[in-house]
Design a protein around this nucleic acid. Structure first.
Lengths: 124, 124
DNA sequence: CTCATCTTACGAATACTGTCGTAATTTGGC
DNA sequence: GCCAAATTACGACAGTATTCGTAAGATGAG
């Protein structure tokens, strides 16, 4: 049941974003990145990452003093999973409903719209 | 800051879905609806709805013995808010990224695609 | 080698969610 | 008016997320 593996919490997601972006990172690096827009102690980040390792959300290389972490779930799978959950729980399973709301809300640029239309035409 | 008001938990969202659908409902009605695809005690649903009332997620008419509840946040606002949060936290703020993944993943029907294209053409 | 520094490990406190059992209250039927 | 049934209120508990302080361990400079 891989389903269970993909359920990062909000904080874990923030850390995963850093790991996905950097490929790999130490606790220090992750913490510095998070500190740009969030205040919390160093050991908080450390603990979170240790837990993520226990859970299997992250791999780590602890061959040297300073451990190096990597995401252990793919960004794509995670996006897919969470998006699907949202479609189910908020849009009654209708993807197009979600899509139209997403586009309707935001001030989407003309370029984006064109891009999506191209995408859809190709799908057909 | 209305922001804080819109953060229903997963269970609360299930209840809100029932309230949005029915317009108003008693605890019993909500519980029966939820029981269709979930097992939990009556008092669990009751408690949740009481808490939702405290939080301001739901209004209630307790003029008669059997209280009648209504959602106190709109489905549309809630969808918007949670969708925006997801775009931020998972897609780096790119709505079109989310949209394309949503459409790419799922076996979207041709009708849905057409519908969305129509929608986009109108937007342009 | 030794110590200051960096890093990890551990455990505890707090808060919140979801769960339910039991008690209290209200009501309609008789 | 009284009682059984329905309903709500209350409090407790387990699980988990987030936070951090403090202890322990590793490392490198001198």
């Amino acid at each position: 049941m891989k389903k269970d593996l993909i359920k990062p919490t909000e904080s874990e997601l923030e850390i995963l974003n850093v790991l996905w972006e950097k490929g790999q990172a130490t606790v220090k690096e992750v913490h510095e990145k998070l500190s740009e827009h969030k205040i919390s102690g160093y050991t908080t980040t450390l603990k979170l990452m240790q837990i993520m390792h226990e859970k299997g959300l992250a791999k780590r290389d602890d061959s040297s003093k300073t451990h190096v972490y990597q995401a252990n779930i793919s960004q794509d799978k995670t996006r897919q999973h969470l998006l699907r959950k949202m479609v189910q729980s908020l849009y009654g399973g209708s993807t197009s409903q979600l899509v139209m709301q997403a586009l309707g809300n935001k001030a989407t640029t003309r370029e984006e719209i064109e891009e999506i239309i191209q995408f859809l035409e190709k799908m057909k």
